[in-house]
Simulated assay, not measured.
Amino acid sequence: MPKIVLYARVSTSDQTLDHQRHQAEAAGFKIDKVIADHGVSGVSTKLADRPQGKRLFDLLAPGDTLVVRWVDRLGRDYRDVSNSIRHFMDEGVVVKTVINGMTFDGSTKDPIQQAVRDALIAFMAALAEAQAVATKEAQKAGIAAAKADPLTYRGRKPSYSRPQYLAVVSMLDAGSGASAISAETGLTRQSILRIREDRVGAERALSVWGL
């Protein structure tokens, strides 16, 4: 019988597996099995090299559905994300995202639908890589600023945690609005808008405070 598998990458103690499963179920998915990697970097580690990520390649069968919060869960960069999605589609697995409810299905035979699907895969994979690069650069900038003059740059303690910051950035890049992000993360719209207007400054504040 076809199964619905949720794959989650839990990189911090605040980004809980229960929360990610709750998000998926709230989006209408009836999860049969959860596969999760804990403490594994999504920026430096390929999906196939993660302890649990590589299980997906053996576990998933034709007719199954793979659910992820967003496509950035499926790789460390453009090539890894797009290759992972295409591999699962070739195996008859449907890939679906919680954010924006996207579906990647390899069963369609219509050439126009195929073209639209492939273009969307390329776009989303590129967006995931751009987000990862921007996050790394913002983190480096924040650390450099803190080292240059910790007292000057410390300022007010951020009202958000690093997992919340990463969630906001991810959802902004996925096209979500401030109200929707606020409902999911628990942050105020004002906090979300500040992050949107100055990601480097938001990341710097976290680094200065050691968050």
Rank of each mutant, 00 (worst) to 15 (best):
P51T: 01
T16S: 06
I112M: 12
D49N: 10
I121Y: 04
V208P: 00
L74K: 05
L187N: 02
Y165G: 00
R79G: 11
V168C: 02
A119F: 06
D198G: 05
L47S: 07
F123Y: 12
V133D: 12
A145D: 11
R199K: 10
F88C: 10
T188D: 04
R86H: 13
G39S: 08
Q20E: 04
K157R: 11
L187M: 05
V67E: 07
I31Q: 08
L59S: 06
A26G: 07
V68I: 08
A24G: 07
G155F: 00
A119V: 05
G53K: 01
A125K: 02
W70Q: 12
M1H: 09
V43E: 15
G53Y: 04
V10P: 07
I112D: 11
Q139S: 12
H38F: 15
S11A: 13
T185G: 04
G155A: 07
G28K: 01
G63V: 03
S13Q: 14
R194S: 11
Q164S: 04
A138E: 09
S207L: 10
V34C: 09
T108I: 14
D90I: 00
Q15R: 13
A174M: 02
N83M: 13
M102S: 10
A174G: 05
W209R: 01
D80T: 03
E129Y: 05
A119L: 15
K136H: 12
L193C: 03
F104P: 11
A202T: 06
E184V: 08
D105R: 02
T97W: 04
T45H: 11
L74V: 04
I4L: 15
S13A: 15
A145R: 10
V200K: 03
R69M: 13
